[in-house]
Nucleic acid binder design. Sequence first.
DNA 1: AGGCAGGATGGTATCGATAACAATTCAAGA
DNA 2: TCTTGAATTGTTATCGATACCATCCTGCCT
Lengths: 356, 356
Amino acid sequence: MKNEDEPKDKRLKGGDAQKLTMAEVAKYVGVSAMTVSRAFRQDASVSEETRKRIMEAVDALGYVLDLSAGSLSSRRSGFIAALVPSINNSNFSDTARGITDALENTGLQLLLGYTDYSAEKEEKLIEAMLRRRPEGIILTGGSHTDRARRMLDKAGIPVVETWEIPEEPINHVVGFSNSEAMSLLVRSLASQGYRKFGYIGGTTARDTRGSQRRSGFLKTVDELGLGPGRAISFGVPPITMEQGGQAIVSLLERWPDTEVVLCVSDLSAFGAIMECKRRGMSVPGDIAVAGFGDYEISSVCHPSITTINVDCYGIGRQAAVRLLDALQGSGEAAGDEITLTSYRVVLRESTQRSAQ
Amino acid sequence: MKNEDEPKDKRLKGGDAQKLTMAEVAKYVGVSAMTVSRAFRQDASVSEETRKRIMEAVDALGYVLDLSAGSLSSRRSGFIAALVPSINNSNFSDTARGITDALENTGLQLLLGYTDYSAEKEEKLIEAMLRRRPEGIILTGGSHTDRARRMLDKAGIPVVETWEIPEEPINHVVGFSNSEAMSLLVRSLASQGYRKFGYIGGTTARDTRGSQRRSGFLKTVDELGLGPGRAISFGVPPITMEQGGQAIVSLLERWPDTEVVLCVSDLSAFGAIMECKRRGMSVPGDIAVAGFGDYEISSVCHPSITTINVDCYGIGRQAAVRLLDALQGSGEAAGDEITLTSYRVVLRESTQRSAQ
DNA sequence: AGGCAGGATGGTATCGATAACAATTCAAGA
DNA sequence: TCTTGAATTGTTATCGATACCATCCTGCCT
């Protein structure tokens, strides 16, 4: 009764076999489609022997599970959406990596988008993502359009905002205060004896983390009684290394006696340092420079660059864990939490005071 | 007890509205679900007036289209899958950006995965992606497991391999010969007068592009009669800047008279240069260094780094265009094509021969 | 006037898997 | 021996949108 003499040699040809469905696998094995479906999950109750036979058939036929059908009936898309400003920025791609890694073996897949630092683009992306019915969504920053907030609210899925502490969080938060982190860097350098502080970075509303770092800088310089901070702005994000170089030139033209320059990110700091060297200035001899983010480049660069180390990977990882928690124990712990991630000052050569 | 029933401002207040369906929008407007469905497409025949009313209702109710349902019945997932070795590498994230940009306004969404330079991980990812029934798939490189090839073949969707020219292409190819590109760089530097060439990079099977560059180097040095090339290997990809620094130290210990060192990528070249400077050596005075990939860092660095510029963004963009072509004119031009992308030598300070 | 093209809209049957529940088997305990 | 229930498998009804075809209506041509 188990002899199936149907021809089964027309596989490996692609195209025609594409319409292979679970029911056909079931028929091939001699069970119901439901049993095949169960064989694909780990928790389901299927006898080892049946599962083995099914999996052999799956292999022989080259069947691939169709999740889009499955997610419709189970009402679980298996997606987590995440939006970052840019994937070219290694800080954010580290975060994306953290998310992906945390999602491993959960059956959830990451749907990644980049907003290009634009709230409008973010709004569009959020809508595009929600159309896929993600089970949760991770955002960068706390600045969103009204419509975006409404859509997120209505979607009824957990939301995690990352990389900063929004004034009005939507739901969960995993991040740190960019302003305080920058403040810490200022104080740290002040305690090394630096007095005349310059800053390179934008004020644009596009990059709220950048703005927060800037205001942290200005506030702290003020608090320390070190006169008004000297700040230079340049183009819109994403910031380039080259712009850092241009900016430090203007800054030093305007305030030649500046002792140390803090930059919104390591990338601009690197650009600034390289431009200085190109012009024959010594760093930190003539001018000290610090960055933010502790990119790989900063430890390798000569001089190595003083910076704030941020746990980019951990932000992603923890954001995903928050989401998973919210999805599992949905009944319990409905509280929106703020998870603070660590940062620390990394003093390196670029701000070393020469012994004198 | 009544109070207990009250919702305590729980986050999921949109929960009830979540089950909002197209049929309900239709009822609200007084049309059929089919008409609502049509209103969401641009080509469909719906009167302007009806569409306006529907869209107002969509807005008022906060309805969001459900693509997972749509893709099941239309049998078009709206996904394109792309696998890159790493998203932390800006060369590949540029490619991802190229793909995303080319997909804009096509109604297709990018499903991105990273293989971590592992064929096994690639195989798993391919399966995970195929479960979402992507309409096309973009891979990096031409080295895949047998099972991966079988799955791709059976999937019956267009495949584009990128970043190199595989010996046995699956389908479409968008890339360039890494070996020839490296060869061009060698010849170019030889014509500047360099004679003693060193190379930094791995031989690992994980990074086929790296291996190709290496063999291109060795072959060309040999062809030019410049003795056997001096090659140093180091750890597994993803290569770090720091490893570049370590590698050049070993290389110069072993072959102190080396005149110029070529690196598998700009990142290791940068690390090598910085390490030299740290040790008080001048680049290019004492040793010349060149990279591959023309990362942002190379033009900003001091000294700026000689490299091969690769059209990373264009690779992504063209790969996506190939895919779109294959999807549209599926009847015509079934031929698998190889699209060559451009590369060029960029001579910079790091290999400048001093006038003497 | 009649007829007909073509735009606008509705009705129904899917798409492929899974939830929910029913049915069956088999083993162990009363 | 009968009962009970856990383990395994089957049946049916969806999930929510869209393909496909039918219908209705308007306006224009001969």
